[in-house]
Design a protein around this nucleic acid. Structure first.
Length: 423
RNA sequence: GUGAGUGUAGCUCAGUUGGUUAGAGCACCAGGUUGUGGCCCUGGGGGUCGUGGGUUCAAAUCCCAUCACUCACCCCA
């Protein structure tokens, strides 16, 4: 196949036979979001590069090696958004939403871009839906975020899910903990794997994620972040746990859940599926109490989540969930006179003008071929023109469900169809 | 960036120790009823066997290179 007729690696066409699934996910997520009073926001797909480097963190993987960055005709550095929280917060500040009301609740459904090696459940252009609550530091808002995310996944029909939650504490308490961890690991540094020795300097918390046996052994004896949480963070974390339990939501505390974006504070969570490959996180999020002020806004706390649509579709497929087609016509116009497209067209338009979806033969095919087509399209009725009964100004209308047919005057077609279609 | 695997029809794949014009199922088209679908039957179109080179009388099959894709690591949705 020629290279021009090929989507670039890590990008995908969403084909007509898949679009029904997308409609369904969009519809369900909008429905659940509106129950929680989230309002939709749409922002440009590119932003100033500095928004992300400042917001997400210069040292994170996303910013240091995964962004699609380019220079426009001016000298400005622009970046295709790799995530949505920073753009939403930018819009929040730019439009002074904090002065409209104390609490701002927003949701989005949009494409994101990251330059990574594609694999199962990982694309370079992918879609996320997500929500942000700005203006509240209450753990109840953490719960609204977690429950709305879980609610959407459940509405889609996903079963094999695990909710993991953790608290990273305030930046101050986290620093104290990191110091303790550094102290502990000092004695074991040379026994750690080379990769983990590197992390000791770059992102010490991530050593907990190592799959090397030698690292696991050492980390089993390491102090836990949870033990060093400040009073407030611990109390709020417990409250989140209690509320999830009271709603019958099963979750799993994971004290090693560290997320790759610098802005997170206190509560973090992930929802993972056992039905996708190694990229099992369908959804991730947490609290970011300093992001708004870091980006030049007032001191406003926030909490949010993002979910990956393609991963959800993958999980749904592997759980055997079927979404069905988005649209199909109700009526097919068949014509025994192969050269009478004008007659078919007239009837098709009359139906379409009455908001009835209709398809006709435009290839001058045989009756048999036209009926096969009608069957494939799963129409409810076929209007058959050009038979003997047409001499008296009639046509035949066939009900494809029960194979019955009736002779109907040409000027009664629309009435006949609209009366029988939905009743 | 690193590692492993796979490339045969639109799709899913078969192709035995290298041996005639490269196959099947699904899909597509036509016919079986010169006015009618779903099942069935018959026929048809469609492939430079990823690409380039080499070995051989002979390569989809063996060797080398190259490209593409996939999965995994890292990290994330």
């Amino acid at each position: 196949m020629s290279k021009v007729a090929k989507a670039v690696p890590g990008t995908k066409d969403i084909l007509p036979e898949e679009i029904g699934a997308w409609y369904r996910i969009e519809k369900l997520s909008r429905k659940i979001f509106s129950r929680y009073n989230f309002r939709e926001i749409r922002t440009p797909i590119f932003e100033s590069t500095s928004l992300f480097s400042r917001g997400i963190g210069e040292e994170t993987d996303i910013v240091s090696k995964e962004m699609y960055t380019f220079r426009d005709k001016g000298e400005d550095l622009l970046t295709l958004r790799p995530e949505m929280t920073a753009p939403v917060v930018r819009a929040f500040i730019e439009h002074s939403m904090y002065s409209q009301s104390q609490i701002t609740k927003l949701f989005y459904f949009a494409p994101m871009f990251r330059q990574e090696r594609p694999q199962a459940g990982r694309l370079r252009q992918f879609h996320q839906f997500g929500a942000e609550i700005l203006g509240s530091s209450s753990p109840y808002s953490d719960c609204e975020i977690i429950l709305s995310a879980a609610g959407i996944l459940k509405a889609i029909g996903l079963k094999d899910l695990t909710i993991k939650i953790n608290s990273l504490g305030t930046p101050a308490s986290r620093e104290i903990y990191k110091e303790k961890l550094r102290l502990y690991l000092n004695d074991h540094l040379t026994s750690l794997s080379p990769e983990s020795q590197k992390r000791y300097h770059t992102n010490i918390l991530r050593i907990f994620d190592s799959k090397e046996e030698q690292d696991k052994k050492i980390m089993a004896g390491a102090p836990l972040l949870y033990e060093y949480l400040d009073e407030e963070s611990r109390a709020e974390f417990n409250l989140v746990e209690e509320m999830l339990s009271s709603r019958g939501i099963s979750y799993q505390p994971d004290y090693q859940l560290v997320r790759g974006l610098d802005y997170y504070t206190k509560t973090t969570f992930e929802i993972i599926s056992g039905k996708v490959g190694s990229q099992s996180a369908l959804c991730g999020g947490g609290r970011y109490d300093n992001l708004v002020s870091d980006l030049g806004g007032p001191s406003v706390p926030g909490v949010g989540f993002a979910a990956g649509v393609e991963r959800i579709l993958l999980a749904a497929k592997n759980e055997g969930i079927v979404f069905g087609d988005a649209i199909r016509p109700d009526v097919y116009i068949a014509n025994l006179k192969r050269d009478d497209s004008a007659g078919s067209f007239r009837v098709a338009q009359e139906l379409r003008d009455e908001d009835i979806s209709a398809e006709m033969d435009i290839l001058g095919r045989s009756m048999k071929a036209q009926m096969r087509e009608a069957n494939k399209l799963e129409v409810s009725f076929v209007v058959i023109l050009g038979g003997d009964e047409s001499k008296d100004g009639n046509c035949t209308i066939k009900n494809m469900k029960n194979s019955s047919q009736e002779v109907v005057p040409l000027n009664q077609i629309v009435i006949f169809i609209s009366r029988n279609l939905h009743g």
